[in-house]
Write a protein that binds this DNA or RNA. Structure first.
Lengths: 232, 232
DNA sequence: TGGCATAGGATTGCTGACAATCTTGACCGG
DNA sequence: CCGGTCAAGATTGTCAGCAATCCTATGCCA
Protein backbone atom coordinates (compact mmCIF):
# COMPACT_ATOMS: atom_id res chain seq x y z
CA UNK A 1 0.00 0.00 0.00
CA UNK A 2 1.42 3.36 -1.00
CA UNK A 3 -0.42 6.22 0.63
CA UNK A 4 1.19 9.61 0.54
CA UNK A 5 0.36 11.01 3.91
CA UNK A 6 1.65 14.60 3.93
CA UNK A 7 2.41 13.88 7.56
CA UNK A 8 -0.15 15.82 9.59
CA UNK A 9 1.49 14.17 12.61
CA UNK A 10 -1.42 13.81 15.03
CA UNK A 11 -4.61 14.28 13.11
CA UNK A 12 -8.24 13.56 13.77
CA UNK A 13 -10.14 10.63 12.35
CA UNK A 14 -11.74 12.95 9.80
CA UNK A 15 -8.33 14.00 8.52
CA UNK A 16 -7.35 10.37 8.10
CA UNK A 17 -10.65 9.60 6.39
CA UNK A 18 -10.12 12.51 4.03
CA UNK A 19 -6.59 11.41 3.18
CA UNK A 20 -7.70 7.83 2.57
CA UNK A 21 -10.64 9.08 0.52
CA UNK A 22 -8.39 11.10 -1.73
CA UNK A 23 -6.10 8.15 -2.26
CA UNK A 24 -9.00 5.89 -3.12
CA UNK A 25 -10.75 8.36 -5.41
CA UNK A 26 -7.56 9.18 -7.29
CA UNK A 27 -7.02 5.44 -7.83
CA UNK A 28 -3.76 5.38 -5.93
CA UNK A 29 -5.02 2.30 -4.13
CA UNK A 30 -6.98 -0.13 -6.21
CA UNK A 31 -10.37 -1.61 -5.32
CA UNK A 32 -9.98 -4.77 -3.32
CA UNK A 33 -6.79 -3.65 -1.56
CA UNK A 34 -6.58 -4.40 2.12
CA UNK A 35 -6.35 -1.49 4.52
CA UNK A 36 -4.62 -2.93 7.56
CA UNK A 37 -5.29 -0.90 10.67
CA UNK A 38 -1.78 -1.04 12.10
CA UNK A 39 -0.28 -0.15 8.76
CA UNK A 40 -2.47 2.91 8.25
CA UNK A 41 -1.95 3.92 11.86
CA UNK A 42 1.81 3.85 11.43
CA UNK A 43 1.65 5.83 8.20
CA UNK A 44 -0.28 8.65 9.80
CA UNK A 45 1.32 8.41 13.21
CA UNK A 46 -1.86 7.80 15.18
CA UNK A 47 -3.39 5.04 17.22
CA UNK A 48 -5.53 2.31 15.83
CA UNK A 49 -8.79 3.63 17.28
CA UNK A 50 -8.51 6.74 15.13
CA UNK A 51 -7.96 4.64 12.05
CA UNK A 52 -10.88 2.41 12.95
CA UNK A 53 -13.19 5.41 13.08
CA UNK A 54 -11.92 6.71 9.77
CA UNK A 55 -12.44 3.33 8.15
CA UNK A 56 -15.93 3.10 9.54
CA UNK A 57 -16.70 6.51 8.08
CA UNK A 58 -15.51 5.41 4.67
CA UNK A 59 -17.50 2.21 5.01
CA UNK A 60 -20.65 4.26 5.54
CA UNK A 61 -19.83 6.20 2.40
CA UNK A 62 -19.48 2.98 0.47
CA UNK A 63 -15.80 3.47 -0.32
CA UNK A 64 -14.63 0.71 1.98
CA UNK A 65 -16.02 -2.70 2.81
CA UNK A 66 -15.57 -3.96 6.34
CA UNK A 67 -15.77 -7.64 7.11
CA UNK A 68 -15.92 -8.67 10.70
CA UNK A 69 -12.69 -10.14 12.03
CA UNK A 70 -11.13 -9.70 8.62
CA UNK A 71 -10.69 -5.98 8.30
CA UNK A 72 -11.26 -3.33 5.69
CA UNK A 73 -10.92 -3.50 1.93
CA UNK A 74 -11.22 -0.74 -0.63
CA UNK A 75 -14.71 -1.27 -2.02
CA UNK A 76 -15.00 -3.24 -5.22
CA UNK A 77 -18.43 -2.49 -6.73
CA UNK A 78 -19.95 -5.01 -9.10
CA UNK A 79 -21.69 -4.16 -12.36
CA UNK A 80 -25.01 -4.02 -10.62
CA UNK A 81 -23.89 -1.42 -8.13
CA UNK A 82 -22.11 0.46 -10.92
CA UNK A 83 -25.36 0.76 -12.82
CA UNK A 84 -27.38 1.65 -9.72
CA UNK A 85 -25.05 4.43 -8.68
CA UNK A 86 -25.35 6.14 -12.05
CA UNK A 87 -29.10 5.59 -12.19
CA UNK A 88 -29.45 7.25 -8.81
CA UNK A 89 -27.31 10.15 -9.90
CA UNK A 90 -29.53 10.50 -12.96
CA UNK A 91 -32.51 10.95 -10.63
CA UNK A 92 -30.86 13.58 -8.46
CA UNK A 93 -28.33 15.60 -10.39
CA UNK A 94 -30.33 17.00 -13.32
CA UNK A 95 -32.81 18.69 -11.04
CA UNK A 96 -29.97 19.86 -8.85
CA UNK A 97 -28.18 21.36 -11.86
CA UNK A 98 -31.34 23.28 -12.62
CA UNK A 99 -31.42 24.72 -9.10
CA UNK A 100 -27.75 25.59 -9.39
CA UNK A 101 -28.38 27.46 -12.63
CA UNK A 102 -31.29 29.31 -11.11
CA UNK A 103 -29.22 30.68 -8.26
CA UNK A 104 -25.85 30.96 -9.96
CA UNK A 105 -23.55 33.74 -8.81
CA UNK A 106 -20.48 35.02 -10.61
CA UNK A 107 -17.92 33.79 -8.06
CA UNK A 108 -19.54 30.35 -7.95
CA UNK A 109 -19.31 30.07 -11.73
CA UNK A 110 -15.67 31.12 -11.56
CA UNK A 111 -15.08 28.33 -9.08
CA UNK A 112 -16.65 25.86 -11.49
CA UNK A 113 -14.33 26.99 -14.27
CA UNK A 114 -11.34 26.61 -11.99
CA UNK A 115 -12.41 23.05 -11.30
CA UNK A 116 -12.50 22.34 -15.01
CA UNK A 117 -9.08 23.87 -15.54
CA UNK A 118 -7.56 21.82 -12.75
CA UNK A 119 -9.09 18.70 -14.20
CA UNK A 120 -7.71 19.61 -17.61
CA UNK A 121 -4.22 20.12 -16.21
CA UNK A 122 -4.31 16.75 -14.48
CA UNK A 123 -5.31 15.08 -17.72
CA UNK A 124 -2.47 16.74 -19.60
CA UNK A 125 -0.06 15.69 -16.87
CA UNK A 126 -1.22 12.15 -17.53
CA UNK A 127 -2.65 11.66 -14.05
CA UNK A 128 -5.94 10.06 -14.98
CA UNK A 129 -6.81 9.19 -11.40
CA UNK A 130 -6.43 12.77 -10.27
CA UNK A 131 -8.51 13.92 -13.24
CA UNK A 132 -11.34 11.60 -12.25
CA UNK A 133 -11.13 12.88 -8.71
CA UNK A 134 -11.32 16.49 -9.83
CA UNK A 135 -14.13 15.71 -12.22
CA UNK A 136 -16.04 14.42 -9.21
CA UNK A 137 -15.36 17.63 -7.33
CA UNK A 138 -16.91 19.54 -10.21
CA UNK A 139 -20.18 17.68 -9.79
CA UNK A 140 -20.13 18.19 -6.04
CA UNK A 141 -19.50 21.89 -6.56
CA UNK A 142 -22.63 22.12 -8.67
CA UNK A 143 -24.63 20.38 -5.98
CA UNK A 144 -23.33 22.86 -3.44
CA UNK A 145 -24.33 25.76 -5.65
CA UNK A 146 -27.88 24.49 -5.52
CA UNK A 147 -27.72 25.21 -1.78
CA UNK A 148 -29.37 22.00 -0.66
CA UNK A 149 -27.13 20.38 1.88
CA UNK A 150 -29.10 17.15 2.07
CA UNK A 151 -29.00 16.39 -1.63
CA UNK A 152 -25.49 17.72 -1.78
CA UNK A 153 -24.27 15.19 0.77
CA UNK A 154 -25.95 12.32 -1.04
CA UNK A 155 -24.54 13.36 -4.39
CA UNK A 156 -21.13 13.65 -2.82
CA UNK A 157 -21.11 10.02 -1.75
CA UNK A 158 -22.55 8.89 -5.08
CA UNK A 159 -19.85 10.79 -6.93
CA UNK A 160 -17.25 9.14 -4.75
CA UNK A 161 -18.57 5.72 -5.55
CA UNK A 162 -18.68 6.65 -9.22
CA UNK A 163 -14.97 7.22 -9.06
CA UNK A 164 -14.49 3.62 -7.98
CA UNK A 165 -16.79 2.50 -10.75
CA UNK A 166 -14.78 4.45 -13.29
CA UNK A 167 -11.57 2.90 -12.00
CA UNK A 168 -13.00 -0.53 -12.70
CA UNK A 169 -15.21 -0.16 -15.74
CA UNK A 170 -14.01 2.81 -17.75
CA UNK A 171 -13.69 1.86 -21.38
CA UNK A 172 -11.64 4.63 -22.95
CA UNK A 173 -8.32 5.82 -21.60
CA UNK A 174 -8.78 9.45 -22.63
CA UNK A 175 -12.22 10.83 -22.01
CA UNK A 176 -12.41 13.88 -24.21
CA UNK A 177 -16.17 13.99 -23.98
CA UNK A 178 -15.84 15.00 -20.37
CA UNK A 179 -14.28 18.32 -21.03
CA UNK A 180 -16.83 19.44 -23.57
CA UNK A 181 -19.72 18.29 -21.45
CA UNK A 182 -18.47 20.16 -18.42
CA UNK A 183 -17.83 23.28 -20.41
CA UNK A 184 -21.28 23.33 -21.97
CA UNK A 185 -22.89 22.65 -18.63
CA UNK A 186 -20.98 25.45 -16.98
CA UNK A 187 -22.06 27.86 -19.71
CA UNK A 188 -25.69 26.94 -19.21
CA UNK A 189 -25.36 27.50 -15.48
CA UNK A 190 -23.60 30.81 -16.01
CA UNK A 191 -26.46 31.89 -18.26
CA UNK A 192 -28.95 30.94 -15.59
CA UNK A 193 -30.61 28.61 -18.07
CA UNK A 194 -32.02 26.00 -15.73
CA UNK A 195 -33.79 23.91 -18.32
CA UNK A 196 -30.71 23.62 -20.46
CA UNK A 197 -28.53 22.79 -17.46
CA UNK A 198 -30.96 20.07 -16.46
CA UNK A 199 -30.93 18.54 -19.93
CA UNK A 200 -27.17 18.74 -20.27
CA UNK A 201 -26.62 17.11 -16.92
CA UNK A 202 -29.01 14.32 -17.76
CA UNK A 203 -27.27 13.72 -21.07
CA UNK A 204 -23.87 13.89 -19.47
CA UNK A 205 -24.74 11.22 -16.93
CA UNK A 206 -26.24 8.93 -19.55
CA UNK A 207 -23.09 9.47 -21.57
CA UNK A 208 -20.89 8.46 -18.66
CA UNK A 209 -22.97 5.34 -18.07
CA UNK A 210 -22.77 4.48 -21.76
CA UNK A 211 -18.99 4.67 -21.65
CA UNK A 212 -18.72 2.00 -18.98
CA UNK A 213 -17.87 -1.53 -19.95
CA UNK A 214 -20.43 -3.24 -17.77
CA UNK A 215 -19.68 -6.85 -18.49
CA UNK A 216 -19.46 -9.18 -15.53
CA UNK A 217 -15.96 -9.22 -14.18
CA UNK A 218 -14.06 -11.28 -11.66
CA UNK A 219 -13.55 -9.32 -8.45
CA UNK A 220 -10.07 -7.90 -8.47
CA UNK A 221 -7.49 -7.75 -5.72
CA UNK A 222 -8.19 -9.42 -2.40
CA UNK A 223 -5.52 -11.74 -1.13
CA UNK A 224 -2.53 -12.69 -3.20
CA UNK A 225 -3.70 -16.25 -3.00
CA UNK A 226 -7.01 -15.35 -4.64
CA UNK A 227 -5.17 -13.60 -7.46
CA UNK A 228 -2.91 -16.55 -8.13
CA UNK A 229 -5.75 -19.00 -7.96
CA UNK A 230 -7.62 -16.95 -10.52
CA UNK A 231 -4.73 -16.79 -13.00
CA UNK A 232 -4.38 -20.59 -13.01
CA UNK B 1 -33.54 8.72 29.06
CA UNK B 2 -35.91 5.80 28.91
CA UNK B 3 -34.83 3.21 26.42
CA UNK B 4 -36.45 -0.16 26.56
CA UNK B 5 -33.60 -2.47 25.81
CA UNK B 6 -35.11 -5.97 25.57
CA UNK B 7 -31.82 -7.00 27.13
CA UNK B 8 -29.85 -8.74 24.41
CA UNK B 9 -27.07 -9.00 27.02
CA UNK B 10 -23.91 -8.79 24.89
CA UNK B 11 -24.86 -7.52 21.50
CA UNK B 12 -22.97 -6.09 18.58
CA UNK B 13 -22.78 -2.41 17.74
CA UNK B 14 -25.34 -2.95 14.99
CA UNK B 15 -27.82 -4.38 17.48
CA UNK B 16 -27.36 -1.34 19.69
CA UNK B 17 -27.68 0.99 16.73
CA UNK B 18 -30.89 -0.76 15.70
CA UNK B 19 -32.35 -0.52 19.20
CA UNK B 20 -31.48 3.16 19.46
CA UNK B 21 -32.84 3.76 15.99
CA UNK B 22 -36.18 2.22 16.89
CA UNK B 23 -36.41 4.31 20.02
CA UNK B 24 -35.63 7.48 18.11
CA UNK B 25 -37.94 6.75 15.19
CA UNK B 26 -40.84 5.84 17.44
CA UNK B 27 -40.35 9.14 19.28
CA UNK B 28 -39.56 7.47 22.60
CA UNK B 29 -36.60 9.81 22.95
CA UNK B 30 -37.13 13.34 21.78
CA UNK B 31 -34.89 15.26 19.41
CA UNK B 32 -32.19 17.09 21.29
CA UNK B 33 -31.87 14.50 24.05
CA UNK B 34 -28.36 13.64 25.10
CA UNK B 35 -27.14 10.10 24.58
CA UNK B 36 -24.42 9.64 27.17
CA UNK B 37 -22.07 6.84 26.27
CA UNK B 38 -21.73 5.35 29.74
CA UNK B 39 -25.45 5.48 30.26
CA UNK B 40 -26.27 3.67 27.02
CA UNK B 41 -23.47 1.20 27.67
CA UNK B 42 -24.94 0.32 31.06
CA UNK B 43 -28.45 -0.06 29.66
CA UNK B 44 -27.36 -2.58 27.08
CA UNK B 45 -24.65 -4.19 29.15
CA UNK B 46 -21.78 -3.54 26.78
CA UNK B 47 -18.61 -1.51 26.74
CA UNK B 48 -18.35 2.05 25.64
CA UNK B 49 -16.54 1.29 22.40
CA UNK B 50 -19.53 -0.64 21.13
CA UNK B 51 -21.81 2.26 21.96
CA UNK B 52 -19.45 4.70 20.28
CA UNK B 53 -19.60 2.72 17.07
CA UNK B 54 -23.37 2.53 17.21
CA UNK B 55 -23.62 6.27 17.78
CA UNK B 56 -21.27 6.95 14.91
CA UNK B 57 -23.45 4.80 12.68
CA UNK B 58 -26.53 6.76 13.64
CA UNK B 59 -24.65 10.00 13.11
CA UNK B 60 -23.90 8.94 9.54
CA UNK B 61 -27.58 8.25 9.05
CA UNK B 62 -28.43 11.71 10.29
CA UNK B 63 -30.37 10.51 13.32
CA UNK B 64 -27.76 11.65 15.81
CA UNK B 65 -25.55 14.70 15.98
CA UNK B 66 -22.10 14.27 17.43
CA UNK B 67 -20.19 17.24 18.79
CA UNK B 68 -16.57 16.78 19.60
CA UNK B 69 -15.84 16.53 23.32
CA UNK B 70 -19.52 17.03 24.04
CA UNK B 71 -21.10 13.81 22.97
CA UNK B 72 -24.11 12.69 21.01
CA UNK B 73 -27.57 14.23 20.79
CA UNK B 74 -30.65 12.92 19.06
CA UNK B 75 -30.74 14.96 15.87
CA UNK B 76 -32.97 18.02 15.81
CA UNK B 77 -33.57 18.97 12.18
CA UNK B 78 -34.50 22.57 11.39
CA UNK B 79 -37.20 23.64 8.96
CA UNK B 80 -34.68 23.84 6.18
CA UNK B 81 -33.55 20.25 6.59
CA UNK B 82 -37.17 19.19 7.01
CA UNK B 83 -38.02 20.64 3.64
CA UNK B 84 -34.90 19.28 1.97
CA UNK B 85 -35.50 15.75 3.18
CA UNK B 86 -38.97 15.66 1.68
CA UNK B 87 -37.81 17.33 -1.53
CA UNK B 88 -35.15 14.67 -1.92
CA UNK B 89 -37.66 11.92 -1.30
CA UNK B 90 -39.87 13.49 -3.95
CA UNK B 91 -37.02 13.07 -6.43
CA UNK B 92 -36.32 9.44 -5.60
CA UNK B 93 -39.44 7.68 -4.43
CA UNK B 94 -41.92 8.22 -7.26
CA UNK B 95 -39.63 6.58 -9.80
CA UNK B 96 -38.85 3.87 -7.29
CA UNK B 97 -42.54 3.21 -6.75
CA UNK B 98 -42.87 2.77 -10.49
CA UNK B 99 -40.11 0.18 -10.53
CA UNK B 100 -41.73 -1.57 -7.58
CA UNK B 101 -45.05 -1.75 -9.43
CA UNK B 102 -43.37 -3.09 -12.53
CA UNK B 103 -41.81 -5.98 -10.69
CA UNK B 104 -44.45 -6.58 -8.03
CA UNK B 105 -44.95 -10.14 -6.84
CA UNK B 106 -47.87 -11.47 -4.85
CA UNK B 107 -45.94 -12.16 -1.62
CA UNK B 108 -44.33 -8.73 -1.73
CA UNK B 109 -47.74 -7.08 -2.06
CA UNK B 110 -49.00 -9.14 0.86
CA UNK B 111 -46.08 -7.87 2.88
CA UNK B 112 -47.04 -4.30 2.01
CA UNK B 113 -50.59 -4.89 3.21
CA UNK B 114 -49.31 -6.34 6.45
CA UNK B 115 -47.28 -3.19 6.99
CA UNK B 116 -50.39 -1.11 6.55
CA UNK B 117 -52.36 -3.25 8.97
CA UNK B 118 -49.66 -3.00 11.60
CA UNK B 119 -49.57 0.75 11.20
CA UNK B 120 -53.34 0.87 11.51
CA UNK B 121 -53.27 -1.17 14.71
CA UNK B 122 -50.64 1.11 16.22
CA UNK B 123 -52.78 4.15 15.42
CA UNK B 124 -55.82 2.59 17.05
CA UNK B 125 -53.75 1.71 20.09
CA UNK B 126 -52.92 5.39 20.28
CA UNK B 127 -49.20 4.87 19.79
CA UNK B 128 -48.56 7.61 17.27
CA UNK B 129 -44.79 7.22 17.40
CA UNK B 130 -44.98 3.54 16.55
CA UNK B 131 -47.40 4.33 13.73
CA UNK B 132 -44.98 6.81 12.22
CA UNK B 133 -42.20 4.24 12.51
CA UNK B 134 -44.28 1.59 10.75
CA UNK B 135 -45.36 4.06 8.11
CA UNK B 136 -41.69 4.57 7.38
CA UNK B 137 -41.15 0.84 7.08
CA UNK B 138 -43.87 0.76 4.44
CA UNK B 139 -41.96 3.19 2.26
CA UNK B 140 -38.74 1.27 2.75
CA UNK B 141 -40.52 -1.93 1.81
CA UNK B 142 -41.56 -0.38 -1.50
CA UNK B 143 -37.99 0.69 -2.17
CA UNK B 144 -36.84 -2.85 -1.51
CA UNK B 145 -39.41 -4.20 -3.92
CA UNK B 146 -37.83 -2.08 -6.63
CA UNK B 147 -34.74 -4.22 -6.14
CA UNK B 148 -32.25 -1.37 -6.21
CA UNK B 149 -30.11 -1.63 -3.13
CA UNK B 150 -28.38 1.70 -3.61
CA UNK B 151 -31.55 3.77 -3.86
CA UNK B 152 -33.12 1.62 -1.21
CA UNK B 153 -30.41 2.46 1.29
CA UNK B 154 -30.70 6.16 0.58
CA UNK B 155 -34.46 6.14 0.90
CA UNK B 156 -34.14 4.25 4.13
CA UNK B 157 -32.08 6.99 5.74
CA UNK B 158 -34.32 9.70 4.32
CA UNK B 159 -37.38 7.97 5.72
CA UNK B 160 -35.68 7.75 9.09
CA UNK B 161 -34.97 11.44 9.07
CA UNK B 162 -38.55 12.10 8.01
CA UNK B 163 -39.68 10.43 11.16
CA UNK B 164 -37.74 12.99 13.17
CA UNK B 165 -39.23 15.74 11.08
CA UNK B 166 -42.72 14.46 11.72
CA UNK B 167 -42.04 14.34 15.42
CA UNK B 168 -41.18 18.01 15.36
CA UNK B 169 -43.40 19.54 12.71
CA UNK B 170 -46.49 17.41 12.29
CA UNK B 171 -49.57 19.55 12.32
CA UNK B 172 -52.46 17.18 12.84
CA UNK B 173 -52.60 14.61 15.62
CA UNK B 174 -54.46 11.98 13.61
CA UNK B 175 -53.28 11.56 10.08
CA UNK B 176 -56.12 9.84 8.34
CA UNK B 177 -54.83 10.78 4.94
CA UNK B 178 -51.98 8.38 5.44
CA UNK B 179 -54.08 5.30 5.46
CA UNK B 180 -55.97 6.07 2.27
CA UNK B 181 -52.83 7.10 0.46
CA UNK B 182 -51.02 3.92 1.38
CA UNK B 183 -54.00 1.78 0.43
CA UNK B 184 -54.37 3.38 -2.98
CA UNK B 185 -50.65 3.15 -3.62
CA UNK B 186 -50.59 -0.50 -2.69
CA UNK B 187 -53.47 -1.19 -5.06
CA UNK B 188 -51.63 0.49 -7.91
CA UNK B 189 -48.54 -1.57 -7.19
CA UNK B 190 -50.55 -4.76 -6.96
CA UNK B 191 -52.07 -3.97 -10.36
CA UNK B 192 -48.62 -3.45 -11.80
CA UNK B 193 -49.66 0.06 -12.82
CA UNK B 194 -46.30 1.83 -12.69
CA UNK B 195 -47.50 5.19 -13.93
CA UNK B 196 -50.27 5.36 -11.37
CA UNK B 197 -47.96 4.26 -8.58
CA UNK B 198 -45.49 6.96 -9.54
CA UNK B 199 -48.19 9.63 -9.52
CA UNK B 200 -49.68 8.47 -6.25
CA UNK B 201 -46.31 8.41 -4.56
CA UNK B 202 -45.53 11.89 -5.77
CA UNK B 203 -48.86 13.19 -4.52
CA UNK B 204 -48.47 11.38 -1.24
CA UNK B 205 -45.10 12.97 -0.56
CA UNK B 206 -46.34 16.43 -1.47
CA UNK B 207 -49.26 15.82 0.83
CA UNK B 208 -46.97 14.91 3.70
CA UNK B 209 -44.88 18.00 3.15
CA UNK B 210 -48.01 20.14 3.02
CA UNK B 211 -49.10 18.81 6.39
CA UNK B 212 -45.97 19.99 8.12
CA UNK B 213 -45.99 23.18 10.09
CA UNK B 214 -42.74 24.59 8.79
CA UNK B 215 -42.52 27.78 10.74
CA UNK B 216 -39.19 28.60 12.34
CA UNK B 217 -38.99 27.06 15.74
CA UNK B 218 -36.57 27.29 18.62
CA UNK B 219 -34.42 24.16 18.84
CA UNK B 220 -35.94 21.88 21.42
CA UNK B 221 -34.28 19.84 24.11
CA UNK B 222 -30.57 20.11 24.69
CA UNK B 223 -29.63 20.82 28.23
CA UNK B 224 -32.30 21.56 30.79
CA UNK B 225 -30.65 24.88 31.29
CA UNK B 226 -31.26 25.83 27.66
CA UNK B 227 -34.93 24.91 27.99
CA UNK B 228 -35.44 27.03 31.07
CA UNK B 229 -33.61 29.96 29.59
CA UNK B 230 -35.91 29.80 26.61
CA UNK B 231 -39.16 29.76 28.64
CA UNK B 232 -38.17 32.91 30.52
C1' DT C 1 0.13 -36.22 -5.65
C1' DG C 2 -3.89 -34.74 -3.14
C1' DG C 3 -6.69 -33.95 0.86
C1' DC C 4 -6.97 -32.91 5.70
C1' DA C 5 -5.75 -31.61 10.33
C1' DT C 6 -3.06 -28.48 13.06
C1' DA C 7 0.29 -25.05 14.80
C1' DG C 8 2.03 -20.47 14.11
C1' DG C 9 1.63 -15.80 12.78
C1' DA C 10 -0.95 -11.89 11.69
C1' DT C 11 -4.88 -9.03 12.44
C1' DT C 12 -8.97 -7.51 14.45
C1' DG C 13 -12.32 -6.92 18.68
C1' DC C 14 -12.72 -5.26 23.02
C1' DT C 15 -11.80 -3.61 27.69
C1' DG C 16 -9.87 -0.81 31.24
C1' DA C 17 -7.36 3.08 32.43
C1' DC C 18 -5.67 7.63 31.87
C1' DA C 19 -5.48 12.25 29.66
C1' DA C 20 -8.02 16.08 27.64
C1' DT C 21 -11.99 18.78 27.52
C1' DC C 22 -16.23 20.73 28.77
C1' DT C 23 -19.93 21.93 32.17
C1' DT C 24 -21.39 23.15 36.62
C1' DG C 25 -21.51 25.57 40.71
C1' DA C 26 -19.32 28.16 44.24
C1' DC C 27 -16.64 31.96 45.43
C1' DC C 28 -15.20 36.73 45.27
C1' DG C 29 -14.68 41.53 44.20
C1' DG C 30 -17.11 45.43 42.63
C1' DC D 1 -27.12 42.12 43.02
C1' DC D 2 -24.11 41.13 39.08
C1' DG D 3 -20.32 39.54 36.36
C1' DG D 4 -16.15 37.06 36.19
C1' DT D 5 -12.73 33.48 37.84
C1' DC D 6 -11.61 29.08 39.21
C1' DA D 7 -11.91 24.39 41.06
C1' DA D 8 -14.53 19.99 41.03
C1' DG D 9 -17.19 16.74 38.62
C1' DA D 10 -18.75 14.65 34.55
C1' DT D 11 -17.96 13.11 30.00
C1' DT D 12 -15.48 12.19 25.97
C1' DG D 13 -10.91 11.06 23.38
C1' DT D 14 -7.06 8.09 23.05
C1' DC D 15 -3.89 4.52 23.98
C1' DA D 16 -1.80 0.11 25.21
C1' DG D 17 -2.53 -4.55 25.98
C1' DC D 18 -4.88 -8.92 25.85
C1' DA D 19 -8.24 -12.21 24.03
C1' DA D 20 -10.55 -13.96 19.98
C1' DT D 21 -10.51 -14.89 15.27
C1' DC D 22 -8.87 -15.86 10.82
C1' DC D 23 -5.30 -16.91 7.28
C1' DT D 24 -1.19 -19.43 6.00
C1' DA D 25 1.91 -23.00 5.73
C1' DT D 26 3.66 -27.11 7.36
C1' DG D 27 3.31 -31.92 8.17
C1' DC D 28 0.87 -36.20 8.00
C1' DC D 29 -1.49 -39.96 5.85
C1' DA D 30 -3.67 -42.34 2.15
Amino acid sequence: MTLQSDLPANSSSEDIAAALRRSILAHRVSPGSRLVEDEVADIFGVGRSIVRMALQSLAHEGLVTMIRNRGALVADPGVREAREVFETRALLEPRTARSAAERATAPAVTRLRHHIEAEHRALQAGDLGQAVYLSGLYHVAIAEMADQTTISAIISTLVSRSSLVVALYWRRPQALCERHAHHALTDAIADGDGTKAEDLMKGHLLDLLANLDLRERQPVGGSLRAVLLRSS
